[in-house]
Amino acid sequence: IHNPLPEGCSLLELEHITQCVVKSHIETSQYSTEELKRMAWSTYSVEETRMYQSKSAEVMWQECAIHITNAIQYVVEFAKRISGFMDLCQNDQIILLKAGCMDVLLIRMCRAYNPINNTFLFNGRFAPAHFFKALGCDDLVAAVFDLAKSLSRIQMSEEEMALFTAAVLLSPDRPWLTDVQQIQKLQEKVYVALQRCLQKGGASEEKLTKMVSKLPVMRSICMLHIDKLEFFRLVHPETAYTFPPLYREVFGS
């Protein structure tokens, strides 16, 4: 039943990888599952929602850019704690983070999504899609909510999410990487660890297929975000210049 072990990889090593990745995920999650559960029914009032909707696009973009930047810092910490990541050359580390951090954020995001009332955690409370109207990107917001809905249907455990986000981050097909083979080996080990974790949890074979099948949607959301940012930059260059430097670094051309 078990998948063959990657060449030169022992069961002990897989166990070590799993423990390391899961620990890193838990240590670098902005909110614990208990905190999220506690907040799940704390929503915005109609007046507060209207107030957010009537903000200018510049103010709302700035606010969201700050939230995304904070979340990226946690993803960088997550990456640093994955065994083998810091052994890669710094050029490759940066390429993997720039290309993969939004994917990781999109997967992690479904922890902060309540599928029952279709709301997302934003600034300490849960907000529906129309809350983000001021951004002027209804299609991007709708795509993010749709993804969260479909990801939450998969019902990933924290262990599965930890390993899946690590595997996505270690994608060897990102352009300009120097040590593709090394990254490929690392990713293969993480995927086998994930398969074993799924089998242990009694999950069906389909669960991994379902998780992986969301990757193209994530990629299109990442591209849509970049498109929207580029348009915003054209219309409001001064505001875009005041976005957090890390946000500009990661999403700049």
Binding site: E27, T28, N70, Q73, Y74, V76, E77, K80, M86, Q90, Q93, I94, L97, K98, P245, L246, E249, V250
Partner: peptide
């Protein structure tokens, strides 16, 4: 290197800038 100054710094920092 200049282009990814902050990522470089974050990767080199042994302590996290985020209060984890």
């Amino acid at each position: 290197k200049e282009k990814h100054k902050i990522l470089h710094q974050l990767l080199q920092n042994s302590t996290s800038p985020v209060d984890l």
